[in-house]
Every structure is written in C-alpha cells, then in structure tokens.
Amino acid sequence: MAKKTYLQALNEALAQEMERDPNVFILGEDVGRFGGCFGVTQGLFDRFGEERVMDTPITESVIVGAAAGAAASGLRPVAELMFVDFIGVALDQLFNQAVKMRYMFGGKAKVPMVLRMPQGAGIGAAAQHSQSLEAWFMHIPGLKVAIPSSPADAKGMLISAIRDDNPVVFLEHKLLYGVEGDVPEESYTVEFGKADIKREGTDVTVVATSKMVYSALEAAETLAKDGISIEVVDPRSLLPLDTETILNSVRKTHALVIAHEAVGFAGPGAEIAAQVAEKAFDYLDAPITRVAAPFCPVPFSPPLEQAFIPGADEIVKAVRALR
C-alpha cells in the first residue's frame, strides 16, 4: 500500500468522488488555481475546470448558504472555509439553514453538503486562525461531524461525507496535513459513528481525537516502558459518536482519560465523560480525566502557544495520576 500524506489522501478522495459523480463540485476560498490555503485542492482546478472547482469571494455566509441551496437542489457540494475560525461569519447558514431544512420540512428535503475546515493550533496563527471548535458542531442535531486523525481515515471519511445525504462538517487539523500513512489507492469509505482502536491496551482507555491521537500513541509508548498498557480509542466522528466502543473499552480498562485540543470546559470531552459516567459508572476505578487546552483564546507567541497545546506529556501525567 502506498504511503500518502493526510493532505494527499484528502485530495485523492475529492478527485475520485468528482470522477465518479458529476454532481460533486468544490467551492470555497482560493480552492481553484491556488489549490486551497493548505493545498488540499491542488491540481483539481486543472483537472476538473473552473466549472467544478469554484473560487468564491471571501464571504463565508454565501459559501455555506450557496452550498446548502445547491445541495437542496440535488448537487453534492464540498465547500471549504480557509480556517474553521471563519465559521462564525457563516454559522446561520449552517446551523439554522442547511442542517434544519430536513427536520423543519418534515423530512422532505435533503442537504448533502460537506463543509471542510482546517482547525487547530501550532503554526503561530493566533486566536482567530487556530481554534478547535468541534464541540460547537456536536451540539447541532441534524449535522454530522468528522474529525479523522489518520490519512487513511481522512480519505475514507471524506468519501463517506460526500456520499452522505446530510450536511457534514469535516475538521482537519492543519498540522496533520503532512502526516504520512498507508492509504489504499482505490476508492473506499470509512463509516461515521464507528470508533477505531488505534492501539489496544488493558490498563487505561485514552479517547483521543485528531492530532491528539498521535500524542496518545506517543504517551502509550512512554507508559509501556513502565508497564502501563494504554488503549487508544479514536472516535473519528464526534457526531454520531460511537459511545459503544468507548464504553466497551472502559469496561475493560476501568479508567478513562479523554484528550483533545479544544478547550476543556464544555469541550467534546465533557460529553464523552458524561456518557461514560451515565452508562459505565460502576466500571470506573478512578475519576474521568480530561487532557485539553486551557480556557483561553489561542495565544500567538511561540512559547505561549506551545503552553496552550496539550500533548503526550500531559496525557502521561494524567494517566500516572490515576494510579
């Protein structure tokens, strides 16, 4: 199997779906000849033309809303916002329009659109270009939220997202774009709502998302040297959330650490912790712990930014504290 970067995997997913289905098209900020801010749509403009790879003005509401309107009219748009932080400009078109149409209209509409947005800190982009906002989207009934960590998951989930008849928010950590992994050449799907156990273990469950999956795997290596066995569970989609796989892991390990880059307070880990507390309380031998960013905007200066971003060390510490 060929090694590909996360970015190449996404690019391949887009190309294969556009090849397969003429209703699939791309619109967004600088997605055309420029190839997207981070390069995800590179080459697609030359291959599919400007009729299917559309550069929009920097007006996020109409990017999201036009995708919704086109999707409700039978197309399958894949919209890109340059940074997830810009969703604030366009939020109404997502959560009040695209997502609610089906329910409000009594099931008589479908809105098969994908909204791709890079997120995460680590490139010195400061408070308006670095957030992890997945918890916002998890709170919206009718939406699906993908947050893949590996290149193979990124490809398969993007293909699933494009074929899904519901609006999907697709969150890509910008520091994952260069990560390499085995990615099948052919087209395939990775189902939403199916967590992946990235490493099996027996002592502590670490539920980690996006870039924190790599931190969790790193922490697992460190802890293994001390004879502590970590199970790393990657939910891959937060909405729907595969609660069952998480619960099964906790029933086995009796301990849970949740790791994400979003701020901890009311973050995605709060929901995961609540689910486990409600459904597997008796299995827990220790309080549930969260490893997350502190409750502040993302700072600019490199040492401050690094202090903001949680990593393997914090996970190691959290696991040790349980024992």
Partner: peptide, 14 residues
C-alpha cells in the same frame, strides 16, 4: 439569499 444563490448555482451548473 444564500440559499437562492445556491439554487441558481445548481441551475447554472446543470
């Protein structure tokens, strides 16, 4: 407005 623009975009696309 954005939804109408999207519906019109779909017509042009097709």
């Amino acid at each position: 407005g954005p939804l109408a623009t999207g519906a019109a975009l779909a017509a042009k696309y097709r």
